[in-house]
Design a protein around this nucleic acid. Structure first.
Lengths: 231, 231
DNA sequence: GCGGCTTCCGTACGCTGTACGGTCGCAGGC
DNA sequence: GCCTGCGACCGTACAGCGTACGGAAGCCGC
């Protein structure tokens, strides 16, 4: 089901599709009744609603009222479609550029973190696709650019800026979808865990609170760097 | 390929398998030539070597010199096998309990973070399995217990302790497998990204350095909490 | 009108997880 | 020692997957 990119020519084709490069355009033959964008939109809708496991080429084609193999005339394969879907939804991030470039650094990074979190909560499949490290498209690059601007002008070196953006993104990816309650019966022999579980289940430990806690700690630590950038 | 747990009875069966509960044991009939442990060991070896996508029931059975359907006499299905594999490899973590319970808090959390990182680098598939939130087995619970002890006795509340462990684990999960170089050609219109890419490609931005940077910031931020636990 | 290119897609192949039911070997009762 | 029955093993089969291949059909330039 993963279906990575294998053939090297498909990589170039994916790059061209990501940037919506116009085809060679020796205009002749039947003109297409379908384009990349409707395919990607339908696929994103399906993945949002039912998850990546339900996203089969046949299902996507069915949603479009088209034969399964028709998709392969527009997209090299499933792996490339996933990469296109990822870049498409990444375009939703930071719709207002000023929210991540105005205010002090802490407000900016706070906005970056929250935007990425709601993004991953809306499109949980995006995390799985990112894990395959698809090539960056225009929207991924735009996101990288904007998040770098959020940490620009603070007296940090360029590698520090990159690390900081990577750090915040990584924290978000790690923070979504965490925490399952252990079976309260089997806590014998785990005294500290038993104590913590007993104390937290009464307080309704929710991932939201855990995220807020982690973000606070992270921004505090980043603040110590910004005050003294000498590593 | 994901193959989650569907039937509710399988959940109970998985729980029993995780804790290696002895079967009902009305001893009669042929005694098994195969057990859960060899299956899990073979599956882990296969996943380590070729990734989760190559882990099919038929492949695992083949490695054991056994028919494919034989596995279903020991394990309810693929999803449950993944959960068993995860708990099995989690047993590798913190082999020396003192490494995460001795020294000052920073050394302890440093040890926790590095152990989890090398663990995820050795078993990249574990991150994917964790994303499905399988039930915690004995080794997952042991890991939770030990990591809680690393932040015990610091004057923190129990929810704070839980959040801290979740934060470090999440940071690790987010930090492994990050960073792909953008196609250097298409950086027009992204001045900050262009500047950073130009500065970092010459320094060979490696994920190792990014991890060290993030861990330092994270521990700094946690230190501020420990100095003043009043939230 | 026609030749050729392009798009659409039916069929097919090898793979997947797993439901079903048959076969067989071992253990307990007599 | 034999019979009975249970449990382990697993061959077959089915639905569904990604996608290679090649035919059918539509549209363009001439």
């Amino acid at each position: 089901m993963s279906t990575e990119i294998h053939r090297s020519g498909d990589r170039d084709r994916l790059e061209a599709l990501l940037w919506r490069a116009a085809p060679v355009s020796g205009r002749t033959g039947a003109r297409p009744a379908l384009g990349i964008d409707p395919i990607v939109v339908a696929a994103v809708r399906l993945a949002d609603a039912e998850g990546l496991a339900a996203l089969s080429m046949r299902r996507v084609a069915g949603e479009l009222g088209v034969g399964a193999m028709t998709l392969y005339g527009h997209v090299p394969g499933r792996g490339e479609l996933l990469a296109l879907m990822l870049d498409a939804v990444l375009g939703e991030l930071h719709p207002d550029e000023r929210s991540v470039t105005s205010g002090n650094w802490r407000a900016r990074l706070d906005a970056v973190a929250r935007a990425n979190r709601t993004f991953l909560l809306r499109h949980p499949w995006a995390a799985q696709v990112t894990a395959d490290r698809p090539p960056m498209g225009p929207n991924a690059l735009r996101k990288y650019e904007l998040e770098l601007r959020a940490v620009d002008g603070l007296g940090l070196s360029e590698p520090q800026m990159d690390h900081l953006v990577t750090l915040v993104d990584g924290f978000i990816r790690g923070s979504v979808g965490r925490g399952q309650a252990p079976p309260a019966g089997a806590l014998a022999g785990f005294p500290t865990a038993a104590r913590v579980v007993a104390a937290t289940t009464s307080v309704r430990e929710d991932p939201e609170r855990s995220f807020e806690f982690g973000l606070e700690r992270l921004l505090d630590g980043i603040g110590m760097l910004i005050v003294n950038p000498g590593r």
